[in-house]
Amino acid sequence: MIRFDNVTKVYPRSTRPALDDVNVNVERGEFVFVVGPSGSGKSTMLRLALREERATSGTVLVAGQDLGSLSARKVPRFRREIGAVFQDFRLLPGKTVDQNVAFALQVIGKPSSAIRQLVPETLEMVGLEGKGKRLPHQLSGGEQQRVAIARAVVNKPQILLCDEPTGNLDPKISLDIVHLLDRINRTGTTVVMATHDADTVNQLRRRVVQLDEGHVVRDEQHGTYLAPIGAATSSPPSDPDAVEDAEVAEEIGDLDPERFGGEDR
């Protein structure tokens, strides 16, 4: 389902590769944790799988597509097969929960009859029934992440990529979120989750891929979190992606909300 063959990624204006000759194969229906210290290449891996970035060398195959040769025109259709969840939720502050989830369907042209059916169904699945009319700021962090997850899976993607989904949440809530992801995985969705959260990894005992300075240093079925190897961070810093983000920050025109930061309105 997701396959990295000898993948190396070097960001412009950076000498050290973010990923260095990585080989990973994720089968359909698997649940994989990607662990490792800040700057080890976890986010880069997910960005490559989402085709936010392209590999410097090697082959990235996702959902049957070779992302190296996928034309820009076909990227949107490819991304409809993939859901993505981030540490910062990325909800639209001016839209209600219902509208946030519906937005993902509206912009890909789903008929409104399908939207009216799918949105409440998905909100119920993530445990937010009855909260559709609320605005994001009226919800707790865990609930906001549930909205983000609902938005990611409402179009029933084959793959769900989660980049530190519990990074902003306290331990108990984190565990709830991971159990929700586990439930989604059991319906057949392939889930890849990059995380710093040792507790959740150790609780679920699923496959663990550990990265260190761009290399895969461990790939273990039913693995545990284990302490980091190279760098000395065991507790997540406030923004674990800061290093990589600085590396990927390109010209100001590129409209990735993550890179602009800040609030609108």
């Binding site: 949107p76 409809r80 993902a104 890909i108 938005r151």
Partner: peptide, 8 residues
Amino acid sequence: GIMRLVGA
């Protein structure tokens, strides 16, 4: 950002 993410 969200539109791009969900494949608009």
